[in-house]
């Protein structure tokens, strides 16, 4: 149990120390994961609502696909992106391998199905309740999408936070395409993996506690904003 109490004390000391290297790592983690979650939020909410509103062949297959991709293994996404972005690969000329933008791309791929699936479920309910009425009022299906998203505000927030939860905790994909380069592509999760491999277990655990604390703070802030919006 010593390791755990050491880790808690160490985590507190780390947060309070203002250590520049640690804060740079936290900043990169948040930047990459928030960017990916926001892009996934835009893509996924439009896709999820469109899947609820439009009727076309293959729609059910796409819904099934989005739900299946919830279990997309990060290491496979990372590997596929590595092959694409490698200088020898088809997109090698972009020079993205071992850079933060490559990390944003793989995390966006991982988070988009999550947002899509959650928003789709909520938008479908809203469509069943209000779709007919909105159509009778003369709105086209495309015009209804933003209306549905407005009605499904809370599930949309849940979807965004779920997407962020996926990106901030993810290590398998970003360690492959990012390379865990000190001061450049090292994030909280890849730093934890590195410290574990160096046998620095209490320090690795302390970094984990810092990461969890940040996640709680961010989720708390999001819910607080949502609560205030709900009140008149």
């Amino acid at each position: 149990m010593d390791d755990f109490s050491n880790a808690v004390a160490l985590a507190l000391r780390l947060i309070l120390s203002g250590d520049a290297e640690l804060y740079a790592i936290i900043r990169l983690s948040l930047t990459v994961s928030l960017a990916a979650a926001l892009i996934a939020g835009v893509l996924g909410s439009v896709a999820g609502a469109a899947l609820a509103v439009f009727r076309f062949p293959g729609r059910r297959a796409l819904v099934l696909l989005a739900n299946s991709l919830l279990g997309l293994p990060p290491v496979v996404v990372g590997l596929a992106a590595y092959i694409l972005f490698s200088r020898a690969g088809p997109l090698g000329a972009w020079g993205l391998l071992f850079t933060p933008p490559a990390m944003v791309i793989v995390q966006t791929v991982l988070a988009t199905p999550i947002v899509t699936a959650i928003v789709h479920r909520a938008a479908e309910e809203m469509w069943a309740l209000y779709g007919d009425g909105l159509q009778m009022a003369g709105a086209t299906r495309a015009e209804i999408i933003p209306e549905l998203l407005k009605l499904a505000r809370l599930p949309l927030l849940t979807a965004l936070l779920a997407g962020f939860g996926r990106t901030i905790s993810e290590v398998g994909a970003i360690i492959i395409v990012g390379g865990n380069i000190a001061g450049f592509t090292r994030t909280m999760t890849t730093a934890i993996a590195l410290q574990t491999s160096m046998g620095n277990l209490p320090f690795a655990l302390a970094l984990g506690l810092v990461l969890i604390t940040i996640s709680i703070a961010l989720n708390g802030a999001a819910f607080a904003i949502a609560d205030r919006r709900k009140r008149p």
Binding site: T31, V32, A35, L38, I39, V42, T99, M103, V104
Partner: peptide, 14 residues
């Protein structure tokens, strides 16, 4: 707002 926030964050990483 979302799009802008994402772009600013992307600018930050690049």
């Amino acid at each position: 707002f979302f799009v802008c926030a994402a772009l600013i964050l992307l600018g930050g990483v690049a």
